[in-house]
């Protein structure tokens, strides 16, 4: 079971080259297959994930959550998806049509791109970039553009405000996000995901870098625009922020992309701080799924516990607290590494 997916990929490439295809083209086809696999995983995952979030939020509020359709209401999301697919696709007349229509596509493309570097098992990265972690951060920073496009393209005050807010928030929280990961990179001495996972074979980085983990968790929550940092969506004041004017599948694409980002960030957190796919007994790809889902549940719990914080508090929390703390963590890590090296480790 351990090497099931890796063996399948090898078999596919061997079969294609056996058909007389150049190795480069066989690799390209494998890449396409991997992309399709990622997209299928993303789409299947979101149906489970939305159901899970509804269930968890229901349990937190001592409700039952969805329970009508299928076992434990598991098919509720599928019914919702069908509803969204059959809805009218409305493009308001005064919008900037080109931007309005491309924004959801840009958002979902960027969030699917994040999965390229995540190791989903032993040797199961799609591409094991030598700058994998940096790739994740810089591609993640692109999603601001998509939200800005949605906010501007809708030609609606609330959309624009939501877009502006999310951009301001994401740009502010990108800095502590990157800085908190730097501590891990300093210990590992590499930005490559497989190196980071390998460096945690003895001890998880969450133990070595607790401050980095907490700052990363907070800034990732803000970067994902999730509660309690969901100011850009703030239903009570902005209806839905940048998504206000979107209907049907266009809106669903935003939703899909948000959850895709959420899973990607949780998987990254599992990889960087919780030992990645390493674990006893079970196959490696199952371990990363288990860890990711546990982290996702913490995200759910936090969202359904804390009230939304105010916009100015949000910004000053990033600039006046998280950035200094994450900088101090870098300093501390550097000093610690130096001292340990002097001591002869």
């Amino acid at each position: 079971m351990e090497h099931f997916f890796v063996n399948t990929a090898h078999a596919l490439v061997a079969w294609l080259t056996g058909l007389g295809l150049a190795p480069g083209w066989a690799d390209l086809i494998l890449l396409v297959v991997q992309w399709i696999a990622v997209i299928i995983i993303v789409i299947l995952n979101i149906t489970v994930l939305i159901w899970l979030e509804r269930k968890v939020s229901g349990f937190i509020q001592q409700r039952l959550g969805p329970n009508r359709l299928g076992p434990f209401g598991m098919f509720q999301t599928i019914a919702d998806a069908i509803k969204l697919l059959t809805k009218e696709d409305i493009v308001p007349s005064q919008t900037d049509r080109m931007i309005f229509k491309t924004a959801p596509m840009v958002f979902i493309i960027i969030s699917v791109m994040l999965y390229v570097v995540i190791p989903m098992g032993d040797g199961m990265e799609i591409v094991d970039l030598n700058v994998g972690l940096f790739y994740f951060i810089s591609i993640g920073s692109l999603s601001t553009i998509a939200l800005l496009m949605a906010g501007w393209g809708s030609n609606n005050k609330w959309s624009l405000l939501g877009g502006m807010r999310s951009v301001a928030q994401m740009i502010s929280y990108e800095i502590p996000l990157a800085f908190s990961l730097l501590g891990v990179v300093m210990i590992t001495g590499s930005l490559r995901m497989s190196d980071i996972v390998a460096a945690q074979s003895n001890i998880w980085f969450v133990v070595l870098q607790p401050i980095a983990f907490i700052t990363y968790f907070i800034s990732a929550t803000a970067e994902l625009n999730r509660g309690p940092f969901d100011m850009p969506e703030a239903e009570q004041e902005l209806t839905s922020g940048a998504y206000t004017e979107y209907t049907g599948m266009r809106w669903a694409l935003f939703f899909l992309a948000e959850y895709t980002n959420l899973v990607a960030v949780s998987a990254l957190m599992a990889t960087v701080f919780f030992g990645g796919w390493q674990g006893p007994w079970l196959p490696s790809w199952l371990w990363i799924i288990i860890k990711t889902y546990l982290i996702l549940n913490v995200f759910f719990l936090i969202k359904w516990t804390f009230p939304r914080i105010r916009m100015d508090h949000l910004m000053s929390f990033s600039w006046k607290f998280l950035i200094p703390v994450s900088l101090a963590n870098i300093l501390l890590t550097g000093a610690g590494i130096e001292v340990l090296m002097r001591m002869g480790w």
């Binding site: 229901g58 349990f59 937190i60 001592q62 409700r63 039952l64 719990l301 936090i302 516990t305 804390f306």
Partner: peptide
């Protein structure tokens, strides 16, 4: 305070649901 809040919601998560399925 944040931890206390998380504790409360976590406690409620495993309590009996009060929903009546009308």
């Amino acid at each position: 305070g944040l931890l206390k809040g998380l504790g409360i919601t976590l406690k409620h998560t495993f309590e009996r649901e009060i929903t009546q399925q009308y």
